[in-house]
């Protein structure tokens, strides 16, 4: 069995997955504490990971009905992410593996999001295009095989999930406001206001910084009272712009590559409008279960199945990396 750890941001995650990709346990301990700061505080995230990680591992093993004796491979997220947070998982995973003489598979977090698609019971086989959109990353990739991906486009500034959260803050919805913004948008008119979709950004790259600024100006122009009265329309139009910005690049990539298979991942994959739009593309679409779209360790275990593991003691010096 594979025991996997994921601590790249603010969720402390451990999973037990079989080599065939069957999930036996997938435990996520979310650190709700960041909400009151209006964003993830790296130092607080690191402190919580350290406090939680061993208990989360115990929980995953117990849920899987397994013991450490049953573990054949330890997998962990090596990067990218918050380096202090990553280091807790890296130090923990290395020590667990070393003390038991097990091999270790270091996994790239973004490859993990891609590999969420390979898990049972409904694995989606390459080749396909994969859009990964969350609060931390936004990229469009071509997945030719199980072991890697080619980046076709990435955000030049904010991540899509970050755009949701920043928009929600401007509308007074608190943090993390993405889901609240989508709920508000459900009853609004997505065409009431025209927000930019970074149409001038060529190719397959994304940009969301201008969108946030456009919403700020629109809210100011309307004035507090009008903005509050039209909050559903503002939310719907803002969400529409994010989804269309994502979809424009996906459609372009489908045209350019001729690939007629598309997968999505990351927290934004839970967005209903994005799901509806992508389902209407007329291509084969795969969306992993919601708990496999947001950060989790099962996807890290999945990716580890195609990583050449490092034998003991070759990984003792392994370090985390912050950026891709």
């Amino acid at each position: 069995m594979i025991l996997a750890l994921e601590t790249s941001c603010d969720d402390t995650c451990a999973a037990v997955v079989t080599p065939a990709g069957v999930i036996l346990a997938d435990v996520v301990s979310s650190q709700g504490i960041h909400d009151r700061y209006g964003g993830v505080v790296p130092e607080i995230a690191s402190r919580h990971h350290l406090e939680l990680v061993n208990a989360v591992i115990d929980d995953a093993l117990a849920t899987a009905g397994a013991r450490l004796d049953d573990v054949d491979l330890v997998a962990l997220t090596q990067g990218p992410g918050l380096v202090g947070a990553l280091l807790v998982g890296v130090a923990t995973g290395k020590a667990l593996a070393a003390a038991r003489g097990l091999p270790l598979a270091p996994v790239d977090h973004l490859q993990g999001h891609v590999a969420a698609n390979f898990l049972e019971p409904a694995p989606f086989e390459p080749p396909f295009l994969c859009l990964i959109a969350s609060g931390g990353h936004t990229l469009l990739t071509r997945v030719a095989d199980h072991a890697g991906y080619e980046t076709l486009g990435r955000t030049l500034d904010d991540a899509a999930g970050e755009a949701f959260d920043k928009g929600a803050r401007l509308l007074g919805l608190g943090y993390p406001g993405g889901p609240a913004l989508s709920r508000l948008a459900a009853t609004g008119d997505p065409h009431a206001f025209a927000f930019p979709t970074a149409a001038r950004v060529a190719g397959l790259d994304f940009s969301f910084a201008g969108l946030k600024t456009a919403l700020l100006y629109k809210v100011r122009a309307l004035g507090e009272e009008q903005a509050a009265r039209r909050s559903t329309d503002l939310a719907a139009s803002y969400e529409h712009a994010i989804v269309e910005a994502l979809m424009a690049r996906v459609e372009r990539a489908v045209d350019q590559t001729g690939l007629d298979r598309v997968a999505i991942g990351g927290g934004v994959a839970a967005n209903r409008r994005l799901r509806e739009r992508i389902a209407g593309l007329g291509v084969a679409v795969h969306v992993p279960a919601p708990e496999l779209c947001t950060d989790n360790a099962a996807m890290i275990a999945s990716a580890a199945r195609w990583v050449t593991p490092l034998a003991f003691p070759d990984y003792l010096a392994l370090d985390a990396y912050a950026s891709a």
Binding site: L50, L68, A91, G93, K94, A95, L96, A99
Partner: peptide
């Protein structure tokens, strides 16, 4: 983290 994981293992 290393100490806790060694203890666990």
């Amino acid at each position: 983290a290393t100490g806790r994981a060694l203890a666990q293992a």
